[in-house]
Design a protein around this nucleic acid. Structure first.
Lengths: 195, 195
DNA sequence: CGTCTATTTGAATGTACTCAAAAGCGGTGG
DNA sequence: CCACCGCTTTTGAGTACATTCAAATAGACG
């Protein structure tokens, strides 16, 4: 199994994964390569896969009535990304996921996801904890979004995710923070001028 | 077992719960009564319980550096509420949960939560789906928070949760939406004047 | 009825937005 | 290798929306 995936599992569940489980799980995963700007998941279609990013990066975004898009989540190598609303509910998705760089993923079909969870409790536990963690950090992010200024949100984001700052264009970070690129530019100027 | 809890489980997992599972799970739950304004969970302490609200309502909030509080989540009878960050991580909590009305809850200790999940796959599944759903709606709420105006967020909130509008003071709804009570008052005036 | 809390209203301020344009940067083809 | 093109970031000026501070009104509860 892919080293980064194995270490994600072991880090998450806090112990080693038996080789036979790795073996079986590996057989459920298939590889796919995307170019920059390719669409992994399209809003409006049912999302049947979750993607583990092996190399590269991508982001989930949402289009509003005015036709503006809003970045909801970023994913880089070592992370899973998907439209979990659609994946879990089986309804049409609302998020589009797009590659930011040339990206290699391992994708897991919903059927195999369920098989893995039913056959091997270790994967049940893995995905459960992953989503628990995702919930907790999302709640924290929402709390900050409603309580902090854009400047503080940017500062926190850049200390929490310095790697994202390097690889993700600024206008998408602005979108993720809920502000316009022009505003983020001004905010950044403010910050550097104060130093 | 409490009817509203049993129906929550059956609605969530999509099938009946065997009586013996109900029996065991019921033994893990204990009842507690709170008055209005009582604190169920205090920020700064480790949260060892999740609470199923039998009667009444409560809300989770967060205090920022300026000493202002922000409503993060509401819970009414039939819903679970907790500081999941603290509950899952075992670290000190950041949210305070307070009763909005005289409230009766069933509380489940973390040890019993884990026992239930380990002994009975049906509860594993129940809590897993609960948190999946919570994640999905939280992500949607965040998407709306960064992409919509305060007015649209209020309108959507009031159509999505008409019951909350009835029972929860307006200044807390404002806080939940990320605006000040004065602003929500003006926004509401705007809306009614347009009709 | 009186007190406490919540909601509404007013006026001035501030923060982020819009529209618009210039500057910067990266990749491509001549 | 450099000129050009497209895309991102920055800057400017005016505007819109939410905030602050302050006070008045309305409601809830003993």
């Amino acid at each position: 199994m892919l080293v980064s995936l194995k270490s994600s599992i072991e880090r998450t569940i806090g112990r080693k994964v038996p080789d036979e489980n790795c073996e079986i799980f590996s057989n459920y995963l298939f590889e796919k390569t995307f170019d920059k700007k390719d669409i992994l998941i399209e809003a409006g279609s049912v999302c049947k896969y979750i993607y583990f990013i092996k190399e590269g990066s991508c982001y989930a975004h949402l289009e509003d009535e005015k036709g503006e898009t809003h970045a909801i989540q970023f994913g880089i190598d070592g992370y899973w990304i998907s439209d979990l609303y659609s994946f879990f509910s089986g309804r049409k998705g609302i998020y589009t996921i797009e590659a930011l760089e040339p990206t290699k993923v391992l994708f897991l079909h919903k059927d195999n996801f369920e098989k893995a969870c039913n056959e091997m409790p270790i994967f049940d536990r893995y995905f459960r904890i992953l989503i628990q963690n995702a919930f907790v950090s999302l709640q924290y992010r929402l709390a900050k979004t409603i309580s902090e200024t854009a400047e503080n949100r940017y500062t926190e984001f850049s200390t929490l995710h310095p790697d994202f700052i390097q690889r993700i264009p600024q206008y998408l970070i602005a979108s993720y923070l809920g502000i316009k690129p022009q505003s983020l530019s001004r905010t950044r100027k403010e910050i550097t001028q104060r130093k």
